[in-house]
Design a protein around this nucleic acid. Sequence first.
DNA 1: TATGAATGAGGCTTCATTCAT
DNA 2: CATGAATGAAGCCTCATTCAT
Lengths: 197, 197, 197, 197
Amino acid sequence: MSLRAQKTAKKKEEIVKSAISIITEKGYHNTTMEDIAAKLLMTKGSVYYYFKDKHDLLYQSYKMLLESSINTVADIQRENISVEDKLSKVMTAHIEYLIAERSGFETGINPEQFFEGNKLKSILDLRSKYASEIDRLIIEGIDSNVFAPVDVKIVRNIILGAMNWVIRWYSPEGEMRGEEMASSITKYLLRILKQND
Amino acid sequence: MSLRAQKTAKKKEEIVKSAISIITEKGYHNTTMEDIAAKLLMTKGSVYYYFKDKHDLLYQSYKMLLESSINTVADIQRENISVEDKLSKVMTAHIEYLIAERSGFETGINPEQFFEGNKLKSILDLRSKYASEIDRLIIEGIDSNVFAPVDVKIVRNIILGAMNWVIRWYSPEGEMRGEEMASSITKYLLRILKQND
Amino acid sequence: MSLRAQKTAKKKEEIVKSAISIITEKGYHNTTMEDIAAKLLMTKGSVYYYFKDKHDLLYQSYKMLLESSINTVADIQRENISVEDKLSKVMTAHIEYLIAERSGFETGINPEQFFEGNKLKSILDLRSKYASEIDRLIIEGIDSNVFAPVDVKIVRNIILGAMNWVIRWYSPEGEMRGEEMASSITKYLLRILKQND
Amino acid sequence: MSLRAQKTAKKKEEIVKSAISIITEKGYHNTTMEDIAAKLLMTKGSVYYYFKDKHDLLYQSYKMLLESSINTVADIQRENISVEDKLSKVMTAHIEYLIAERSGFETGINPEQFFEGNKLKSILDLRSKYASEIDRLIIEGIDSNVFAPVDVKIVRNIILGAMNWVIRWYSPEGEMRGEEMASSITKYLLRILKQND
DNA sequence: TATGAATGAGGCTTCATTCAT
DNA sequence: CATGAATGAAGCCTCATTCAT
């Protein structure tokens, strides 16, 4: 990648990160392009230089979030630890990421409402990919008798729902630090899966 | 309540129910007053007769949903059954209600984003009330040694997140009926609380 | 048509007529919706109540112009006069209409540039219809030996070009009245067709 | 002219020619500076090196077209042929030029709409000059009894309108070649002027 | 000369809301 | 009570133009 292309990529990422946090805070429709630009000390026009339109910015932001999540899981999958530890790490990472990036996209933006056609498909595909990574861990755990047999789809969605909900109630000003809370949630969720012997 | 007042109340409820389902489907900002009116074969003007403005309609809809939930819990609280059964019933009812009414308000509408001042306070109070009903059941269960000791706030939020998430992934066209799924989710969530003796 | 529908139709026509004259004067792109509304002492919003968007207003204006031309020709076709008189009347009417309505659509708006898809097709169809009415008169004249044999398509386009050009150079402030000029142009154009015996 | 000046002049002409054809095709307002630059594999910035602004590019393009037309007429005026042949040649050249350069400026761009002040005056002067060259030929023809007496202004405008209209309907894919059509139109237009003895 | 990133004015469009009938 | 025409504030987006490198 040329220097220029790098610079452009960096700028795009900067905008995306900023957009994610404002949109999480105020909601997509209550966030104006002006808001997004202003937060970065840019003008609207500049944002449009990097993104076709507001919707495109949302799409690319969403995609980046999902891809980042998938990468995290893939990294963890490669580690040489037990299934339980892997799932544990995946969950903790997920929650900590939400908190750190202040991203409420998973709860605040319903892909079916915001996207259509190829864009929707692409988002749903990424979601599925992430979901199946979790499923894989669950199944592996069941197969190796570490986890009890469960309805994988339902349990996975319980896990996702519980994790994504965090952004709605966790406050950094509270008594618990993010990591503590992440590991606490993880611990409780694992109880659903653990053999009861 | 006079006949007229009754009629008005009925009409209001009709509008609210319709609004909830459209807003759940398309999102608040993608739903126009025209849409809401049209679905009921009314005109915009009529809706304004019953509700001060769009925001008021949202507020009253949200309130109605929460109050209905709270009533349900209260009813269950009064029943003469075990704590575990009570919590179980509350969760099942919550999920089935979401599915039946096709309401995605809990996930789709973040009160902090949509309301402010007294309205926000009133919504948050109702939420708290509902939350503390659940907390009460959890605590009661712990006190009576039916449930393991847990961080009540965290577990309660895990439960809420997992339940509310349902509207995002459950499809009535799928193989599982709503009640089945509700009881399945309930069963798994209870594992978090159950003593592991 | 109900009273209300009549009123709406009238208002639409009012807007269209006004739009035609402003667009002719300033050009489509130099005319703002504000301009069009202001000229009628309306607000932008009102115009949008009657027309989907600016382009739709252009389309309906263009269509109305063409339909009106076609009706005029049809009326003349039915009259009990000679072919030459018919063609003569058609040309005179065309020119006088341009001047009276101050419409420069034919020269100022190239359908291929402004429309596409079905709208383009619909405009081109109307144009064709008008063109073939003129062709019919030319052919009739040739068949009855009143006109000399000519390449119909070319002569028709000469006639159209010469007539439409009027809006570009005729000034009502000049020495010649519109009708005079219309009949003068008509007279000259007929020379192209007249037998030279 | 220095080598550098020559190079600059050449580049300017290149840009102008390219601009004329894009603007003819898409219209001035639908043509962006980006479009013009891209077609020449330049960047916007470069175009601005040669032309003050978009409007200046339009102006110079229009001027170049008119000057070229005037030069053509002047050349023909100097030829040692009959008045009729001169007018004939002028018209044929005019039409062939429009077709060859795909220039629809005469019909697509109304000077009154696009220019003002000195620029408008300068364009109108060139137009007048061109018009009076045609007038001169007509008058000469009348004086020498080759042409019938006519209202010169009207006939000249008929001729101009008929010629300029060509760009709107002539398609190079059609059955007739450009030269054929040019001479055909010329032939018909001359009938307006020819003595009918 | 050439580039491409940044700017900002201007125009289109939507839609909640009002109000006379 | 109901209607539908009218309003106008607010936000998206385009693109000519500038300018540092």
